[in-house]
Design a protein around this nucleic acid. Sequence first.
DNA 1: AATGGTTTGTAAAAAACTTACTAATTAAAA
DNA 2: TTTTAATTAGTAAGTTTTTTACAAACCATT
Lengths: 283, 283
Amino acid sequence: MPSNIMQQISADLESLNRSERKVAEVILADPQAATRSSIAVLARAAQVSEPTVNRFCKRFNTAGFPDFKLHLAQALAHGVPYVSRSVEPDDDSESYTNKIIDATIAALVTTKKTVDPQMINLAVDQLIQAKQIMFFGLGASWPVAQDAQHKFFRFNIPVVAYDDVLMQRMTAAASSTGDVIVIISYTGRTRELVDVAELARASGATVVGITAPNSPLAQHCSIVVEVDAPEDTDVYMPMTSRIMHLTVIDILATGVTLRRGPDFLKHLKNIKDSLKETRYPAK
Amino acid sequence: MPSNIMQQISADLESLNRSERKVAEVILADPQAATRSSIAVLARAAQVSEPTVNRFCKRFNTAGFPDFKLHLAQALAHGVPYVSRSVEPDDDSESYTNKIIDATIAALVTTKKTVDPQMINLAVDQLIQAKQIMFFGLGASWPVAQDAQHKFFRFNIPVVAYDDVLMQRMTAAASSTGDVIVIISYTGRTRELVDVAELARASGATVVGITAPNSPLAQHCSIVVEVDAPEDTDVYMPMTSRIMHLTVIDILATGVTLRRGPDFLKHLKNIKDSLKETRYPAK
DNA sequence: AATGGTTTGTAAAAAACTTACTAATTAAAA
DNA sequence: TTTTAATTAGTAAGTTTTTTACAAACCATT
């Protein structure tokens, strides 16, 4: 079963023969309409016979036309485009706005497939009983580390976050059993962070990596929450990776909260309420 | 046309008569299977006649059974649950992992609908010609402000980010025409930030708000990129809002990059390449 | 130009869906 | 409790849609 039938169609466009390509083009031109058409209408639009449309459907591993429409409808759902195409120089603001949001959604869908709940569980096991937690990140991952600190300080565990490589090294070297160091890195190839991971493990600390699978960093961690890094082909800034990492932080924080049990929820509410004073009341 | 047919079905369950409820229950029990069944199979499963299933479909504003299946398929697409239910105390790691990712996706879909590309455009207009840019955020929004700084420093414009209220006040007061201050706030009700916005505008700076529509902060900004803040009903801290804000930052950064034109991409590539030294090469 | 393979369409069959009508059930009133 | 009206459910026939089988046309190759 193809994960996204629209991608398949555009990818296989060249390998199709004349009539089937006509069908493909009609569908690609207005996929929404295709989901609402009968095989007869579609065949007429593509100027081919009905069986041709049927054969076309089967070529894409669907049971037949109705099943094909179902797949198509799924691919189009949510208004998420079949290929989150990259931003192009002459896009207007509406166009690039939508493309970026779509790309982010696509990244999250990928994350959902790749993140291993088992690893989340192991990471939570460690975090819940940590004497102290440290979040390390550099560059674009530094705000992520800070965000994590902002979340975890609520758990009444000592939490720090460092973006300073020297501080990271020193803390890693000074750490001991019971300390948990969470290292966030998009590529998992930053030398400094790999060193820090090694140092920390040598000192007995548990090292949790939120990073790319099979990367050098991943190999030096006690627990790895794998976040697959799609090539950022586009404009040269990391975009979606931070968001995937932040989502992992959310998941870990939730995991810890749940383990803490219902009494702990009251504590969180108190923290939240403490901000009331600083705000204009809602109308 | 119902926005989400699964929600509709569970909501209207009580108002259905006996046979139709049987149909509803069969569908609710395994919606995926329903999309693959013919009307005959479904009728048999629900122990009712085929026309009953057909009537059931029409009750939900669909043209008939095939159309109903289409709607169903859309609602089930991406594996995003029909109601992104909130995390519950006895969820296991797989369950809460998926729920959180789904909620994040849902938030982005909302963002896509609410963000006004026109406002993005106006904000980019200002950013592109800024003498200086300042990003302000407090609490959970502070990492977002930092992330923004990390993106915008690449544009060769002086950029700062402050989470210190006093620094924010002073900078706002000292600002002048040509300066752009971007204030990030989830609620738009933080007194300090509203004050800062007022101060900055009095000094002649342009104030861009990334915040809730119609909030006190929004009223004091020159340009508002509205990010609707869904009630975070849960006790579990603000989650999705940061991600929505970060996505807006991505969009703004992309907008600026596009305006800078193709030559500028080379400059961005240089910045990226400058990191090569610090990394282990990809295998 | 002939041949083999592929592609495409025609027509018939099968499946699926819808409609109109009737029977059964239920609820309310006498 | 019986009658009546209204609702609900099913039967059967009709219609549409989809699929299959087969034959014609096309294309590339020799």
